[in-house]
Design a protein around this nucleic acid. Sequence first.
RNA 1: GGGGUCGUAGUUCAACUGGUUAGAGCGCCGGCCUGUCACGCCGGAGGUUGCGGGUUCGAGCCCCGUCGACCCCGCCA
Length: 588
Amino acid sequence: MKHRTYCGALNASHDGELVSLAGWVQRVRDLGGLAFFDLRDHTGLVQVTPDPHTPDLREIVAGLRHEDVLEVRGVVRRRPAGSENPRMATGEVEISATSVVVLSPAKTPPFLPEEADKVQEDLRLKHRVLHLRSERMQRNFRLRHRLYQAVRRHFDEHGFIEIETPFLVKPTPEGARDFLVPSRLHAGRAYALPQSPQIYKQLLMVAGFDRYFQIVKCFRDEDLRADRQPEFTQIDVELSFTDEAEVQEIMEGLMARLFHELLGLEIPTPFERIPYEQALALYGSDKPDLRIPLQIVDLTTVFAGSEFRVFSEVLAAGGVIRGLRLPGVASWSRKQRDDLVEKARGWGLSGLVYVMAGPEGITSPSAKYLTPDQMQETADALGLQHGDIGALAADADKSTVAAGLGQLRLWAGRELGLVEKGAFRHCWIVDFPMLEYNPDQGRYEAAHHPFTSPVLADLERFPDQPEKIRARAYDLVLNGNEIAGGSIRIHQREVQRRVFELLGFSPEEAQAKFGFLLEALEMGAPPHGGIAFGLDRMAMLMVGAESIRDVIAFPKTTAAISLMDGSPAPTPADQWADLHLKPLKQGE
RNA sequence: GGGGUCGUAGUUCAACUGGUUAGAGCGCCGGCCUGUCACGCCGGAGGUUGCGGGUUCGAGCCCCGUCGACCCCGCCA
């Protein structure tokens, strides 16, 4: 097709030009003796009207239906004075068509692309092509494309090279559930799809490539969420002879560049560094949304010696009392306050104690259990202004209080309209513990992954308190979403041995599971570290979507099913047999 | 595995306290219409109220189960 012109860019400067357009019928307006239709391509819409001197065209236009695919030839004309459409980018002009060819007729679609965002999501997923035709989705994927390109430029300019790593890899014992790929050639053996290229990128460092990156699919067989799909895309990065500061600086440069090039926004760097413990204390989360201008305040000392049983029992058990300011809600009804207490129970709290700054000064529904000094100190510590309520939570377990008030903080941000609009607030979370105790397994697990370097001084200092050892790990958080996580890795065989020991792996186990990495560490491994970004989440935030499904072309439902193609599909017995398998429950 | 929201025409929604023949907008079909742009006007077709069971004289509505979509907790090194 020769010299195709795009619809969206036409304007009065093209007046008189002969053009050939191709696209979809968006809407037909047939007035009888006169007719118009809007033609849509990936650039936008333009109005077409048949040239009055080609009468046979009138019939073709009368028969046009939504989403028919056309080739249109004609002349760009300024519209008659008074009939311009200022709400349309191409509203100054129209195409006076001399030829309209239906390249492909469309049957009546279940919904129109321009109305797709209003229909139920299962229908949109089933007829994915129609949804993807919508202007919003087209825009989303074009931004995602520009994201890929900017990422590649950034890392290329910083000396990183793109190397592909295998998709058929060795199953990993730790971490998320693997997707398994049974081997046909070797009965009883299986590959796994990679949860991330973690070990391979470390091997590339040992191999002397110095700096690597890859935009790569990763696979995790875990339950889904708005921001989690079983296959997702990482920007995977690793560099040699580096440290936390250098990794973070390069990634801050990447973020600044992406926001500048893709959205025209200048974001300040460096980003705030928040120690993990502090994030939990102030925001009740290790991925705080800094757009919400509220912080949790510790009030434990205010209530030392309190005779209020809700507090005294918690204090006796070594627990904490913390509070959050809720701005402007002092006029709430009793019912509204009770409803929030009910919500708080859902967040794991045993309840909420309120202190109010109302017309009668500092008051509380629990006033008879609290001294005036305690209420005043609470109001002061929380910074209550006239009209605010302080919500207090107490629990013997401080992480319960942190998590509950963290949820309350998010609720307040959303429901009280406190979230700063149009803002992108980044921060680094640092000083993670290296290990977390898993009560189910009765052992410590790597909080990040088993190749994360501990702070070596901590390793020496706390031989008997593994939970005090910090990891050289860092997460990048944007508006309450973890968008990247990384660490400085272990490059010394002996340190790796000690970490495996802390994780409860015997030397034989470690050898069987990660022997190829351990061997590499013995052949001259440079100090190295890196990070991996969740590209889908970045794209979601940058386009303002609520779910990564809106930036993934063909996503799965929360039940991990593709409504479009029906995967996973029942599979015939002979195909299973090739893999030396037989399903316990026959799906087919 | 657990909690929650939703499911009525192709689609988006309505239908009082359980009560006649389940309605409306858009879309679809037919007709009219020479400057529309959410074109307008006239007429029409279109329903297993997700599915199964129960209560009732009577169920879209109440109860139980089930299926599906979405949100959250667990899980996600």
